[in-house]
């Protein structure tokens, strides 16, 4: 589905990502782990088109998306749930969800919110007319995922969806993501620190100092690797 090859990203002169290779197969969930500041979010932002790489290639469904702007990439089927949620604060929950429709191809847009969204996140239904910025962190996270799903993405990019959220809601979000993959065949690229969530993925990539240092099947993800790349 998504293929990133020998990607190099700089902020000014500082070298952030060093020759990163990463593949997300169709219908699979891939988890990216690593400590703070190793470049995980930078990688996701580069995939979304918010940051431009100096070298390397990014292909989606076999076609390069390097020259596309973020809005064009979204319309190619990438749904993005950024770190910090980035809910549009002074729009209502309903309007935030409707914005998710922008990623669908023109002509196939309805103006209704499909019931699946509320099945996944029942809490949103009771808050449709509240302002997005007034929601709590957990509610905003569910809204951000719901909003990304409104665009019927083929690839869902999640950046630390459990950051700063109470354990019971983490389990809800986890279950929702798993249900999305099973029911809609969406591929998922996940950045996560929470181990329980990491274990749900099919593959893992571990990052350190801007490079991929380990990868494999999550079932083979050993305590050693975790100790080496995640533990503080």
């Amino acid at each position: 589905m998504l293929q990133v090859a020998s990607l190099d990203v700089y902020y000014g002169e500082s070298h952030i990502l060093r020759s990163v290779d990463l593949t997300v197969p169709p219908g699979q969930m891939v988890c990216l782990i690593g400590r703070n500041g190793v470049g995980k979010t930078t990688l996701l932002k580069t995939i979304m088109g918010l940051i431009h790489p100096r070298r390397g290639s990014i292909t989606l469904k076999g076609e390069s998306i390097l020259s596309l702007s973020p809005d064009q990439r979204a319309r190619q089927g990438i749904g993005y749930v950024p770190q910090g949620r980035e809910i549009i604060p002074r729009l209502t929950v309903e309007e935030n969800l409707l914005l998710g429709l922008e990623a669908r191809p023109r002509g196939s847009r309805s103006t209704k919110i499909p019931p699946e969204i509320f099945e996944l996140f029942p809490v949103l239904k009771t808050m449709l007319s509240r302002r997005g910025g007034d929601l709590s962190g957990g509610q905003q996270q569910q809204l951000a995922i719901g909003r990304a799903l409104m665009g019927q993405p083929q690839l869902l990019v999640l950046d630390e969806p459990t950051e700063g959220i109470q354990p019971s809601i983490i389990l809800e979000i986890e279950a929702a993501v798993r249900r999305i993959i099973e029911s809609q065949g969406v591929s998922v690229l996940l950045v996560e620190q929470h181990l329980h969530f990491v274990r749900q993925a099919d593959f893992y990539y571990a990052m350190q100092k801007g490079g991929i240092v380990a990868s494999g099947l999550t079932q083979n993800l050993s305590q050693d690797v975790i100790q080496q790349f995640l533990a503080v």
């Binding site: 973020p70 809005d71 979204a74 993005y80 950024p82 549009i88 729009l91």
Partner: peptide, 14 residues
């Protein structure tokens, strides 16, 4: 209104 409040996220939404 969306772009006014958060330009880069609005772009990421398409």
């Amino acid at each position: 209104r969306a772009v006014t409040q958060n330009r880069s996220m609005s772009a990421c939404l398409g």
